[in-house]
């Protein structure tokens, strides 16, 4: 197994082990965002603080919010994947295009029934 595979599995382990720690100690784990936690901390430090500006638009529901978050991730992975694929394809066509195509063509002609 390549070291990169091991590392990829390790990232999954890091994520999921956190979840298990939450199951063991459910009192701590609410899985809210740290921004929510920070909001609570601000309230403790300064109970009178009121946000002086609210978002001009908020996703109307949790579903729409997760849709927009997935869209963000999709745009990002599209960009990364597109260019990696582009260069990978470009390299492999530069390496062995002629050879590969000829082999295919020979095979095709031999097996083809006219």
């Amino acid at each position: 197994m390549k070291i990169s595979h091991l590392l990829a599995i390790f990232t999954l382990f890091l994520t999921s082990s956190s979840l298990f720690m939450g199951i063991i100690d459910t009192a701590v784990a609410e899985w809210v965002g740290t921004d929510e936690k920070a909001k609570q901390a601000i309230n403790e430090i300064d109970p009178h603080y009121k946000p002086w500006f609210s978002p001009i638009w908020e996703p109307p529901s949790g579903e729409i919010e997760s849709f927009l978050f997935s869209l963000q991730a999709a745009i990002g992975s599209l960009l990364v994947g597109y260019f990696i694929g582009y260069y990978k394809g470009k390299n492999s066509s530069a390496d062995g295009r002629v050879k590969g195509e000829d082999e295919n063509r020979d095979g095709d002609y031999e097996n083809r029934v006219f």
């Binding site: 994520t15 956190s18 979840l19 609410e30 929510e36 963000q72 990002g76 960009l79 990364v80 582009y86």
Partner: peptide
């Protein structure tokens, strides 16, 4: 240009992923 897109795309993906952590909250 393509590397800029990959770098920007990487920021897009990673900052969209809210991951649970040991403290019982997500970031």
């Amino acid at each position: 240009k393509s590397l800029l897109a990959v770098a920007g795309g990487f920021i897009f993906v990673l900052s969209a992923l809210k991951i649970p952590s040991v403290t019982g909250s997500c970031s």
